[in-house]
Design a protein around this nucleic acid. Structure first.
Lengths: 338, 338
DNA sequence: CTGAAAGCGCTTACAG
DNA sequence: CTGAAAGCGCTTACAG
């Protein structure tokens, strides 16, 4: 090898005895290149172990094949699953994914978005952090980068930043009806930071069903962690002994409550019913197994990949708001048992 | 706005009344630009909401500021934590991260690496999948992209692909000695696919200590999932009733065993001792709380970021092999209790 | 079906 | 301290 410098289409052209335009045409799989020539060129590329330089191509074409994925909390298994499924689906279609965790920090999010724009991402998929987000969204708009909001609707301009998320209100309704059907009389809603859109969505069905039934709601807002769930299990037992069920903001909270109830010797299922949200993998492995509203986030991620690429490649603008189907998975934690 | 087309340094130059070279110099923070000129140019950039085009810059400079992160199993919380910490540390230094989950598929890994090379990543950090990996590693070598192997040493050429990982053998030794000190007499090693380097490393201290003590090892290799751990808890109780402790390949297996022991009514801590590996967040939240070998993967991720950037920016080639410190965290699952 | 030429937005010597 | 010019590796009309 002469190497040091990577071979370019000019090197390939020389080797194959054609002009560099022809090499480029082969790269595009253009129909206007004779089969023999194509083979010749491909062979030369292989011989030189040529690698396509997308940055150079992008300077003319302006579709780098790079998608920016901006996530508020990548360590949360729910978002991890979403990001991973989405990334793999995009890769399968030949796109690469630049990712960043913003850790719920709007400032970091803004900087992150700026960097990604510099890198020339062709689209953004963002599960936004809350806070001062308008400037960051404006930047994406100015840069002319198609942007989808997912999982959280933080910027209200869904015309420009289409939103897609699971149908949380429906899940909340299903879970609450289920708990009532299982004999629960006083149901708490546990976890989720007060005032946030997601919390409100995941609570809305609960509130509605209880209102229809004439039952008083009992809302314990707070962090969405195992630790909080565990703490609330203890607090509920002390302060609301009549409470016999909980719908949790997410599975982490629910799993925490499971631990708390275990510690209290409170038998989950027969004596106290719990339903979580998200149906993360651990739910089926918990003891007792945890009922949960399944949002099929993996399927959701794949669907988002398809939607964004359809936008990018075919100009199909996504609906301003769309909701994916959710499903209640009934397990031991919310049923009385055999 | 005239826009549609993003403003370039030429537009900025016109607006500021200087040449485009000067604008470029300002972009590099070159010392050879007068302060007043710099201010003028910066102002023009702001007015036009100019955004730097890294792809173009990269064509001349060849450090895109893009790092490729290739991970064998991104859904596993251990790898998630590593990837996230690493990504955030790199972002803080101004780099963007292209990520891909290879899902333990060597073929997908090879394709992924190819795509990332096309995108001009400046370095690779890879926790490799097993299998036919040589061609993929060769590709990175040919492309001249600095590559670090982390967490798993799959390609033996550590001279070219420096390896860094936590000191698993040491952790394994610490855990085994601890279990013996707590009175365990028959310790099983549970989980981890047989024959794999990681499994061997995590087992090595266990085997060594037992040999020194003249105790027969009991190895139950298998998947590293909660489900497997749970299953093994049952199997151990049936087939090896004398076994009174387990060192698990990772925390998922250990948490699964916890569930299994709960189901069996076997009191973990006093009657059966369990130590996991990785100290994932769930370990401290489990019931009983799970003892674990902490590898501080977050700190490890940050350290890798520093090492790679030192390589990239200062030419400091990392040691062929390096090990980070591990620590045994003793909790309820391996102690007899008060 | 293939070649010569211009240009994408930047950086980098080289003059001045 | 600043400008004019060449070039990074590609793509894309435009001729032939």
């Amino acid at each position: 090898m002469t190497a040091d410098r990577r071979p370019t289409i000019i090197d390939v052209a020389h080797k194959a005895g054609v002009s560099k335009s022809t090499v480029s045409l082969v790269l595009q799989n253009s129909a206007s290149v004779r089969e023999e020539t194509r083979v010749l060129v491909r062979q030369a590329m292989a011989d030189l172990s040529y690698v396509y330089n997308r940055a150079a191509a992008n300077m003319r074409m302006s579709n780098a094949g790079l998608i920016g994925l901006v996530i508020n909390d990548l360590r949360n298994p729910f978002f991890t699953e979403f990001a991973t499924s989405l990334q793999m689906a995009l890769s399968a279609r030949g796109y690469a994914v630049v990712i960043a965790n913003t850790d719920e920090d709007a400032g970091l999010q803004a900087r992150t978005i700026g960097t990604m724009i510099e890198h020339g991402v062709s689209a953004f998929i963002i599960s936004p952090a809350y806070g001062e987000v308008v400037p960051a969204f404006d930047a994406m708009l100015r840069a002319g980068v198609p942007t989808m909001q997912v999982l959280r609707k933080v910027d209200g301009r869904t015309g420009q930043f289409p939103f897609a998320g699971p149908n949380y209100p429906e899940g909340s309704t299903l879970a609450t009806r289920h708990l009532l059907a299982q004999g629960a009389r006083r149901i708490a809603f546990v976890g989720g930071l007060a005032g946030r859109a997601v919390t409100q969505e995941r609570m809305s069905g609960y509130l509605e069903v209880l209102r229809a039934e004439g039952i008083e709601p009992l809302v314990l807002s707070g962090k969405s962690s195992r630790a909080f769930g565990r703490e609330m299990a203890h607090q509920l037992a002390q302060q609301h002994p009549d409470c016999d069920a909980a719908l949790c903001f997410n599975d982490l909270v629910a799993l925490g409550m499971l631990v708390g109830c275990n510690e209290l010797g409170r038998k989950v299922g027969p004596n106290f019913k719990i339903v979580g949200f998200d149906d993360i993998e651990d739910a089926a492995q918990a003891f007792p197994t945890l009922s949960s509203v399944r949002c099929d986030v993996a399927g959701f991620g794949r669907q988002i990949a398809a939607t964004v690429l359809d936008w990018l490649e075919n100009g199909v603008v996504p609906a301003a708001e769309s909701r994916s189907v959710v499903q209640l998975i009934e397990r031991q934690s919310s049923t009385t048992g055999a």
